[in-house]
Amino acid sequence: MRIVIAEDSALLREGLVALLESAGHLVVARTSTADDAVRAVSSTDPDVLVLDVRMPDGDEGIRAAVAIRDRNPQQPIMLLPQYVEPRGAAQLLAQPGTGYLLKDRVLDVAGFLDALERIVDGGTALDSQVVAALLDTTGRSGPLDRLSSRELEVLGLMAEGMSNTALSHRLVLSERTVESHISSIFLKLNLDEDTDVHRRVRAVVAYLRSQKT
């Protein structure tokens, strides 16, 4: 993959460069500001942008991501926040090819690389804490109330980007049972079925985002 890294911490930025290059990927640009990130993506056309959410001037990373997506809606972007703050990124989380992982998740190198590959393929990769926040329906009413506790669990793992096979392994269920839960989820949420797993996941994330804003 050809990657642009935008991170204001020099230590983390260079660590990401070393990690990605050791895995055989090419870092085509590295920046420390949001404006430079926008310019770097425009000039290099990378496969994915790894972007710090909090740049020197607050949430400038989000502003840069929105500007980049306005120019190229298909640009894969991995957002790296220090802590969970999904509201500011809600517009982006509902779009295909978006990742949102806490910075300490980078320590799981294999998981981080897998997440990058998923969003480059048009999927999603959301931090489990973000999914938990999206699925928190305490004191709220709405279509999610129609789901059973198991269906909410399946939905949360789908939003993280898990395939049916991964869900089967995680929940110790047969793939047929997982497929049955997913069909029930889409029926209860009035979401059209689609044979493309990534598109279905994005639809779920978009739906959840709409319930939190």
Rank of each mutant, 00 (worst) to 15 (best):
residue 47 D to V: 00
residue 200 R to F: 00
residue 19 L to D: 09
residue 28 V to T: 10
residue 98 T to A: 13
residue 39 R to I: 05
residue 62 I to M: 05
residue 44 T to F: 02
residue 74 Q to V: 05
residue 108 D to W: 01
residue 100 Y to C: 01
residue 89 A to D: 10
residue 128 S to Q: 12
residue 118 R to V: 00
residue 13 R to V: 02
residue 48 V to R: 11
residue 159 A to M: 14
residue 129 Q to H: 15
residue 90 A to F: 12
residue 209 R to C: 02
residue 85 E to T: 13
residue 208 L to N: 05
residue 155 L to K: 05
residue 3 I to T: 12
residue 202 R to A: 11
residue 189 L to D: 08
residue 109 V to C: 01
residue 137 T to G: 03
residue 54 R to M: 15
residue 94 A to P: 02
residue 30 R to K: 13
residue 117 E to K: 10
residue 105 R to K: 14
residue 64 A to F: 07
residue 38 V to W: 08
residue 9 S to C: 04
residue 29 A to Q: 10
residue 133 A to T: 11
residue 86 P to Q: 13
residue 30 R to Q: 10
residue 126 L to R: 10
residue 83 Y to Q: 15
residue 81 P to Q: 15
residue 9 S to Y: 08
residue 45 D to Y: 03
residue 163 S to N: 05
residue 174 S to R: 04
residue 31 T to K: 05
residue 204 V to S: 07
residue 38 V to M: 11
residue 53 V to I: 11
residue 88 G to T: 06
residue 157 L to M: 13
residue 16 L to F: 02
residue 10 A to V: 12
residue 125 A to N: 12
residue 123 G to F: 08
residue 157 L to H: 15
residue 74 Q to Y: 09
residue 182 I to C: 09
residue 189 L to W: 02
residue 95 Q to G: 03
residue 159 A to L: 06
residue 201 V to C: 01
residue 187 L to S: 14
residue 53 V to A: 10
residue 9 S to K: 09
residue 71 R to A: 06
residue 33 T to Y: 14
residue 88 G to P: 06
residue 142 G to L: 08
residue 161 G to V: 04
residue 202 R to T: 15
residue 59 D to L: 02
residue 37 A to N: 14
residue 20 L to K: 07
residue 58 G to A: 10
residue 35 D to R: 15
residue 133 A to K: 15
residue 163 S to T: 15
residue 42 S to C: 01
residue 2 R to T: 02
residue 27 V to W: 03
residue 114 D to Q: 14
residue 197 V to D: 09
residue 70 D to N: 07
residue 45 D to Q: 02
residue 134 L to R: 14
residue 19 L to E: 09
residue 17 V to I: 07
residue 139 G to H: 11
residue 79 L to V: 01
residue 146 R to K: 15
residue 108 D to V: 03
residue 132 A to C: 04
residue 8 D to P: 06
residue 4 V to H: 03
residue 63 R to N: 14
residue 84 V to H: 11
residue 115 A to P: 14
residue 61 G to H: 09
residue 107 L to R: 15
residue 211 Q to C: 12
residue 209 R to L: 00
residue 25 H to G: 00
residue 116 L to N: 13
